[in-house]
Amino acid sequence: MFDIDWMSLALPFAYIGVLGAQNANLEPWFPPHLQRNIYLTLLHMEPEPGQEKAPKVPDSVIRAALLRRAVEDIRRIIQIRTSKQALNSLLQRGSVGEDLNQRFLRAEKEIEEELRDVVTEVKTGRWISFPKRIHANFIQANALSPGWGQTIFQSANEIAANTLLRTRLEEIESRAEADKEWWEKRRETIQKDFMRELEEDSSTKGSVKGSDDDAVLVDSGSPTTPSKKKKGKK
């Protein structure tokens, strides 16, 4: 179910993660589960000050929040699985203590419970608002939700992986901007150096004129790598 390429990419970082975690012995393995808190807050919304009724949260928003919660669960379970390999080899070498292992085992158990919780949420249909739930149609609607219980983590897995891919591609594109600027400047310098060489050549031959030619060459904007052969690949 989980992408193997991802795992191998994450493994070196898992070592760093495990070693870094040693310094915070009493803290839980993971930070507070933000997406879970959002989902449960939406199920328990309270009236705004001065209002009698709690704001109505559409079912579609609740479903989206549950899916975001499942995406975070996927990230955590991948981290747990990759950390496990790293942690076990560090434990064997005696590089980390037993208390770290205890923290890890607790986190592992918690994420398993969290996954079961999400499936229960889908099955009990808390993501369908209360009036609709007691409506006769609910039986029909709920009949569809066990199906989502089977696929919600498949979807969440793709969302997590797709998000990571897009983040990486955005990083490359943002670096590309800086790279492009660097190359523009570099190319200008190469061009100037090349022109100077030409001028030096022509001045030794006694010709001082030639600024018109220079202007044409500079404007042409072709990259100046005069000593190199250009070889296109088809």
Partner: peptide, 26 residues
């Protein structure tokens, strides 16, 4: 940032024509 992601996901779910507007299996 999480709410921005959630709102974006919500908008894309609304475009679905599946029952209950849950994502279809991959």
């Amino acid at each position: 940032a999480e709410l921005a992601s959630l709102n974006a996901l919500h908008r894309s779910l609304l475009a679905l024509e599946t029952p209950n507007q849950v994502p279809p299996p991959p």
